[in-house]
Design a protein around this nucleic acid. Structure first.
Length: 497
RNA sequence: CGGGGCGUAGCGCAGUCCGGUAGCGCGUCUGGUUUGGGACCAGAAGGUCCCGGGUUCAAAUCCCGGCGCCCCGACCA
């Protein structure tokens, strides 16, 4: 199981490093299916922990989980003009329902039965607005049925040209919230609220600092009135869109005829929102915290928060340290700490350290005869630092350490982001900044798609967001960083995943 | 779809230029000794050399044609 090969250093090749970390941490693996990945148990556990935390937050804001079909009639996609344009080029279709034997051998033994062609092909959902709003039309009659606040956890398929583990795979797991409201103001408040929920999750749980704000039209969701997003800066100074929340206006309501009777007795279309985060967040987690020894998992999302490695020479010592290790484990389990006791006999302690470090375990407890004699254990943090802790009250010391690690990871990530952000740059400085490695560049923006396109052409950078007030520079820019015309909003530019 | 790299044991690779019937490291299995930062010794298992043709007495190696993967771009969460 242990990985013999070392991880490619980040400085040498960031993509290779990224893939290595995922392989060594056993988060995922390539699959026999083009562009699809297998999420391994260790990686899936992170997703489960994410799901649990987010679900609690969704429920606390009044949302309920439901499930809608994987298949969407092709005609549904066509009902909203921008939506179909946005997804037309990346869908997987089911067109037939049977195979038939050919009598040949090997891969040619079966073929698609041409007689089984569906009258209307089914799209494998690239997102579920269409089928969900088709159902909403049935469920919503009156203003009393509003707001309708739903969420579903599912998989979706987008036939992307180029894939990357966790960041962009053909099939991926996500959560998509869909809501219907009586007024535009309510829908807007909902879209903003869920953006804030995501921000809390990503900062408090993932220890990943994000910038929130609005997307420009060119980066807006296909069919939305407004798209809000969260953007995080990775260790290679590229931005990662970590989640989106859309105010869909009445676009889908009109397309799917989702109408309700108002309190005043009239008839009106509902206002919708949709919002989602995906397994991409696991990629973001890797690229925010990890190092050349492997994954660094923030304690709140670490599948294993603490590993206990006993150290012995003789059989007597082994039974002694194993017993104490077992006691410590029991104490930690009682304190709701996710803990493993590594009693494997054929591995030296050092080999175990490397293995658990690669898997991102935040805290390691070493228990040897000398420690037991001193009534202590050695605590070693994944992020560095090794200190003894008293055996008595170990659960408290561990909990404190985990909290400190969580806080320190966020602080370090935020400092790194700020160290790679510039504000008020001139056009020349901006070009130089992007060429020199990049990061977040705050600058005035005239709002023109022409400037956006030129900047992308010359620097590969795009507007990540028009940031929310708390992220804006103290001095609002007056002119467009690129063309010099009056600025309509400050923009955050970066090269992005 | 364009550019680059690569397909040889579970993983990482050498061998390809210059053809002679496949090797190294790690891992795995067995036995023994070990265990405070990747243990050591002895033995063993494990390969359609990506696929299909061709040249040759002989092909991992040369020729032709496919396929696949990774990285960079276009598309995107």
């Amino acid at each position: 199981m242990a990985q013999a090969q070392k991880i490619t250093p980040r400085a040498k090749d960031y993509s290779e490093w990224y893939n290595d970390v995922i392989m060594h941490a056993e988060l995922a693996d390539y699959s026999p299916v083009r562009g699809c990945m297998v999420i391994r148990p260790h990686g899936y556990r992170i997703w489960e922990l994410m799901q649990r935390a987010l679900d609690d937050m969704f429920r606390a804001t009044g949302h309920q989980n439901a499930y809608f079909p994987l298949f969407i009639p092709m005609s549904f996609l066509a009902k909203e003009a921008e939506h179909v344009e946005g997804f037309a080029k990346e869908v997987a279709l089911v067109t037939h329902t049977r195979l038939k034997a050919t009598g040949k051998s090997g891969a040619q033994a079966v073929m698609v039965d041409p007689e089984s062609a569906l009258e209307e092909p089914l799209v494998i959902r690239p997102t579920s607005e269409t089928i969900i709003y088709a159902m909403f039309a049935k469920w919503i009659q009156s203003y009393r049925d509003l707001p309708l606040l739903m969420n579903q956890w599912c998989n979706i398929v987008r036939w992307e040209l180029r894939t990357r583990l966790f960041l962009r795979t053909t099939e991926f797991l996500w959560q998509e919230g869909h809501t219907a409201h009586a007024t535009e103001a309510e829908a807007e408040a909902e879209a903003r609220q869920m953006l804030d929920v995501y921000r809390k999750f990503q900062e408090d749980w993932m220890a990943m600092p994000v910038i929130t704000g609005r997307k420009t039209d060119s980066e807006k969701f296909a069919g939305a009135l407004r798209t809000y997003a969260l953007e995080a800066l990775m260790q290679d100074n590229k931005a990662l869109q970590a989640g989106t929340s859309h105010n869909l206006g009445q676009n889908f309501a009109r397309a799917f005829n989702v109408q309700y009777q108002t309190a005043a007795g009239g008839l009106d279309y509902v206002w919708n929102t949709s919002w989602g985060v995906t397994t991409r967040m696991i990629g973001g987690l890797v690229m925010t915290h990890s190092d050349d020894n492997g994954l660094v998992a923030p304690p709140k999302l670490a599948p294993v928060q603490v590993v206990i490695v006993p150290i012995w020479k003789s059989d007597e010592e082994r039974s002694q340290v194993s017993a104490v290790g077992g006691q410590v484990k029991a104490e930690l389990v009682k304190a709701d700490v996710r803990v493993e006791l590594d009693l494997r006999e054929n591995l030296k302690p050092g080999a175990k350290y490397f293995e658990w470090e690669a898997k991102g375990v935040p805290l390691r407890l070493e228990i040897g005869p000398r420690d037991i004699a001193a009534g202590q254990v050695m605590t070693a943090r994944r992020t560095g630092g090794k200190v003894p802790a008293k055996l008595e009250g170990i659960a408290g010391a561990v909990s404190t350490a985990l909290e400190e690690i969580q806080t320190a990871l966020f602080k370090a990530a935020k400092e790194r982001r700020e160290a790679h952000s510039i504000r008020g740059a001139t056009r020349a400085q901006f070009i130089e900044f992007m060429k020199a490695g990049g990061g977040f560049a705050y600058g005035g923006f005239c709002g023109s798609a022409v400037c956006e396109a030129e900047i992308k052409q010359e620097t590969a950078a795009t507007v990540r967001v028009l940031p929310d007030p708390e992220f804006r520079s103290p001095e609002p820019p007056r002119t467009c960083m690129w063309c010099g015309k009056p600025s309509i909003a400050e923009a955050v530019w970066a090269q992005a995943y």
